[in-house]
Amino acid sequence: MLMKAGKAAWAFAFLSAAFFALAGVSLCAGSSGIPCSDILSALLFRGESETASLVLWQIRMPRLFAAVLTGASLALAGAAMQSIFRNPLADPSITGVSSGAALGAVFAITFFSSVFALEIFALLFGLLAAFAVCAVGRTGARMSVFSTLLAGIAVNAFCGAIVGFFMYSVRDAGMRGFVFWTLGSLDRCSWGEIAVSYALCVPAWIAVFCSARSMNVLLLGEENAYHCGVDVRRVRVAAIASAAVMTAASVSICGIIGFVGLVVPHILRIIVGPDNSRLLPLSALGGAVLVVLSDLASRCFSPTDPVPIGVVTALVGAPFFAALLKSQGGGNA
């Protein structure tokens, strides 16, 4: 156990260093060709270059904040879902919230032109999908894990089918917008949207962190957790609601970025063990690192027209994940 605590400290140090290094590179790198010294001056509010200040505070900094929000929220939501459902294959989409939010966004893109319509509909549809999944998964006073997982698959398929129909129906230009949105993009984040998303996500982060010990005991199963003193229903509702809010809020500003919620907690669980008091903060940090890194990679690959970030998270994360699983003999953490 001490060994795992030591590994957790090392993982925290490594991820923190990686995060600050990547954040620095992310703020300095871009297609505008502005020197790093100008960006640094703008960061310290000492710069004379208006362009540097504009690029830093209106483009790159919101992009970094959005990447952190999205990565931390998706990874935390994934870790919480894996604990609650006692299933390493669970991720934020299991509650149907990602596909629900995607449907809301596509609906808003098609029928409304207001700036906040997309965010509002993504959030609304995402939460509605999560509610539908929980309602179907509930048997009497208890929530059946098995039924909830199946309900999630059904809601995901249903929402995915409608999104597919919208994509099939529109012309090429609209199609490209949909594709970018359903594969995730940090290109359209503004401070206003980011502030709203942080206001929604920070309480959800705190709620999940506060449930860490209860979620540990839930890994013994619902009945044993009850015997140990866990109010299973309250913890489950709080975790699912928090995960739904975090996912819907991040999807509403960046679209669907897959893989983060599944793979980041899983990788970290292999390294530091399943104790949520270590796993949850590290997952938040690891998620932020993966999304900032993927954003950077997508911009390096094509500076003027970045590749959808969801494509990059999978390309970066999947080989690393596979190698780690192989080295751990199947990853039975």
Binding site: M1, K4, N87, V217, L220, C228, G273, P274, D275, A333
Partner: peptide
């Protein structure tokens, strides 16, 4: 009692002390 993720023996016993 099937544990979903792999705790150590001491960690498992400690869960009883919630």
């Amino acid at each position: 009692c099937a544990l979903s993720f792999d705790y150590s023996v001491l960690e498992t016993v400690k869960l009883g002390g919630y």
